Amino acid sequence: MEIKLTTPLTREKVMHLKPGDNVLLSGTIYAARDAAHKKLMERLDKGEALPFDIEGAVIYYVGPTPTREGEVIGSAGPTTSLRMDAYTPRLLDLGLMGMIGKGKRNVEVKRKMVEHGAIYFAAIGGAGALIKKTILAQETIAYEELGPEAIRRLEVKDFPVTVIIDSKGNDLYELGREQYLAWKKEEEEK
């Protein structure tokens, strides 16, 4: 069963999601990778406002390929989330509610997610050409000089993601491994 969610996210919207749930996101999400995250931290260090409202926001860790004529955006597959882990706790403290990427997250990010009731989704790596079809509009809103790593506002409809870490800290990568090892043990005992 697919669950439909519209941004901005709230604790109430995500509290019932579990690892492995398939979600179709619609609304506004923000594209930002590591170079943009570094600039966001510099901005916060200077006491400046962020270039978008972080409260309830979802950040997609993506640097899309160049846009071809007649298309909204180029291929838009996820990048490795671990690159943003140094910056993510601070953004969670400011109201970030969702992240989309691929791969594991560190212990501090998970702790902050639980503290704030946030959620981590994965998008399918290698499926950027398919994912871009769910992006209806895009606009560069900050750091245009970063090229594909500029911050973009994306308007999405039924953007497909899977819950990896829920708002309670349950992690699909860990749960899946545990289930596999239990199954393997049962098989060996047969």
Rank of each mutant, 00 (worst) to 15 (best):
G27Q: 08
E115A: 03
S26H: 01
E178G: 11
Y87K: 02
A76M: 08
L94I: 03
L17H: 02
A142E: 12
G74H: 10
E71T: 10
I165D: 03
E115M: 04
F121R: 01
P89N: 11
A142F: 12
E178V: 15
T10W: 07
K132W: 12
G103C: 04
K104G: 07
V14Q: 08
E189Q: 07
Y120L: 06
H16Y: 03
L154Y: 10
G77D: 15
I3V: 09
A32M: 11
K18A: 14
I3P: 05
G20Y: 06
G101C: 05
L94Y: 04
L136Q: 15
K13L: 06
K168E: 12
L92R: 06
E55M: 06
T6Q: 06
T7K: 00
E42L: 07
L92E: 07
F52W: 10
A150C: 10
G103F: 00
P66D: 14
E42P: 00
P89T: 11
P78H: 01
L82W: 11
K112T: 09
K185W: 00
K133M: 15
A127Y: 14
K102F: 03
I131Y: 08
K133L: 15
M15G: 00
V107D: 08
P160H: 10
L40S: 00
T7H: 00
R43Y: 01
I119W: 02
I131M: 12
M1S: 08
E69W: 08
V114Y: 12
I124K: 10
E145L: 02
L94N: 10
R43L: 12
V14I: 15
R68M: 11
V109Q: 03
L9S: 11
G103V: 01
I135V: 15
P89H: 10
L181S: 02
W183Q: 02
A182I: 08
S75M: 12
K38A: 05
T10S: 14
G47N: 09
I135M: 15
T88V: 01
D45H: 05
M99A: 03
L24P: 00
K46Q: 15
K4S: 02
F52H: 07
Q179C: 06
E55H: 10
I131Q: 09
A36N: 04
